[in-house]
Amino acid sequence: MSKFRKAAGLALFAALVTAPALAGKVGLGREALPEEVAAWDIDVRPDGAGLPPGKGSVGDGEQLYLQQCASCHGEFGEGAGRWPVLVGGQGSLKSEGPEKTIGSFWPYASTTFDYIKRAMPYGNARSLSDDDVYAITAFLLNQNGIVKDDFVLSKENFSKVKLPNEQSFYDDDREKAERHFWQKDPCMKNCKPDAKVTGRARMVDVTPEDGKSIKVE
């Protein structure tokens, strides 16, 4: 009797554990409603996919920028304190102090729109209208010398805007360009002349908390 029950139990369990696999789909979760997808799917791509209807002028963007952005990014996009610099920097990428701004470095204008829409202003995300985002993007493009003062940015003309540094990006090529880092037998003995200290973090002196004095026993 007990043996029979055990066998029946096992059979039932086996049926339970194999059932979802037989069905193909697990069946958990539910279909997302179009309104739900629309609420979250706000991302924008370089080809303009995902842009909402709307438009905004450089002039309107300047006003919005001064109210919403300038306290961190500076009145002219020069960045306050350590906040990101948004304007300028053209021609600096090979220098000792490269300035990576929308105009000098970013490959696509869509990144500006997407980021402002999803995450700006810092601490008050999703508070700008789509027209506001178009206008602020237009103003930043204008400050970077990409569009003229009377430009009105819209869903329709967006993908025509090109940023100057787009062609300077290329896909990861470390496996080719750094092929020599793959070595069979790295040197183990007498690999180099005696090493000399050429730099010390202590001289830079930017580490939080001083090193405690140490006593060797």
Binding site: D43, V44, R45, P46, L93, K94, P98, K100, I102, F105, W106, P107, Y108, S110, T111, D114, Y115, A119, S168, F169, Y170, D171, D172, D173, R174
Partner: peptide
């Protein structure tokens, strides 16, 4: 998508002024 964290950040600016992404 070429969003902020894969364009303006987390790309590698090399000595020749070009960048790996």
């Amino acid at each position: 998508w070429h969003h902020r964290e894969e364009t303006s950040k987390y790309t590698d600016l090399l000595a020749d002024g070009r960048s790996r992404r």
